[in-house]
Simulated scan of single mutants.
Amino acid sequence: MIVLGIETATMTGGLALIDEEKLISEYTLNMKTTHSSRLMPALDWILKDASLDKNQINGIAISIGPGSFTGLRIGLATAKGLAMGLNIPLVTVPTLDALANNATYSPYQICPVLDARKKEVYFAFYRYADNILMRESSYQVISPDKLIDQINEKTIMLGDGLNIYGELFKEKLGDLAIFVSNSQRLPKASVIAELGLSKLKAGEIADLASSEPLYIRRADAEIKAR
């Protein structure tokens, strides 16, 4: 089974192809450019380099959020279009879950932190139990200071929220805040694909008509319309 993973929840966009044994190909770009302009060219590129055709893809996994409202909409629309056009299943993967998986088998609490703008962050707490990553909180959006108040033990922190609030976390939390390397801070399409493969095997297929991004809070446009 070949799975295409799509990550557009943050400025770091990416695509990956995996099968049940290995990572076949991955593309990541961490630059200020629109996902809509690079997704399909990137897909053509990784397929060509892997000597594969779109029709050989058996399923699609999409990073569903939270994250950039625009990025999430672009990614999900692209994933739905591909799934419908190729007549293959789509699965959704929460972005924070995928990020937490970057801190493989950590003995400490794990806290992925994404910039939510408006001086807030998206986060959730995770921990490994019997080598299985378990989420221990709901997905939340709060101020960095309120997040700091909830951390009272050594915690692995990762995500683009560190680019903005990393100094604050270090100042307030000291040795309790453990930052992963820069290469592990970013969401990875390959992790989306791996988690998606597990969902496909479990039959957790998304409904193309009703699937929506995991926003946590409403977009500004929706708030203004009320």
Rank of each mutant, 00 (worst) to 15 (best):
I46H: 11
S63F: 15
M31D: 09
D44L: 02
A61Y: 13
I57A: 06
A61V: 08
F69V: 06
E26T: 07
T34P: 01
F69Y: 12
N58K: 15
K32S: 04
A61W: 14
L29M: 13
S37W: 11
K54Q: 06
W45D: 03
S36Q: 05
N58Q: 13
N30F: 06
F69M: 07
L39C: 03
L29D: 10
T34C: 05
G59N: 14
G65I: 14
H35K: 03
I57Y: 04
G71I: 08
L43M: 06
M40F: 15
I60C: 12
M40A: 09
D53A: 11
L52A: 05
T28N: 10
D44P: 00
M31P: 00
G67V: 07
L43N: 05
T28G: 04
K32Q: 02
T33W: 04
A42V: 01
A61K: 08
K48G: 01
I62N: 09
L47C: 01
T33I: 12
E26N: 10
L39K: 05
I46S: 07
M31I: 10
P41M: 00
G65F: 14
K54W: 04
S25I: 03
D53L: 08
I64H: 09
H35M: 03
I62E: 12
I64F: 10
G65A: 10
S63V: 12
Q56E: 14
I60R: 06
L43V: 05
R38Q: 11
M40C: 04
G59A: 15
W45R: 04
G59W: 08
P66D: 05
M31F: 07
T33Y: 06
G67E: 04
H35W: 13
I57L: 08
L72K: 04
T33N: 03
Y27P: 02
L29S: 13
M40R: 06
L43F: 15
M40Q: 07
T34R: 15
K32L: 03
A50I: 02
R38F: 15
T34I: 04
T34S: 14
N58F: 14
S37K: 15
I60M: 11
D53Q: 10
D49Q: 13
G59L: 14
G65Q: 07
P66Q: 09
M31L: 11
K32W: 00
L39W: 12
I60D: 11
G65E: 08
W45G: 00
Y27Q: 05
P66T: 09
N58Y: 13
K54S: 06
T70Q: 08
A42T: 01
W45M: 13
I46P: 00
M31V: 13
L72P: 02
R38V: 12
N30M: 09
S25V: 01
L52W: 01
L72E: 02
A42L: 01
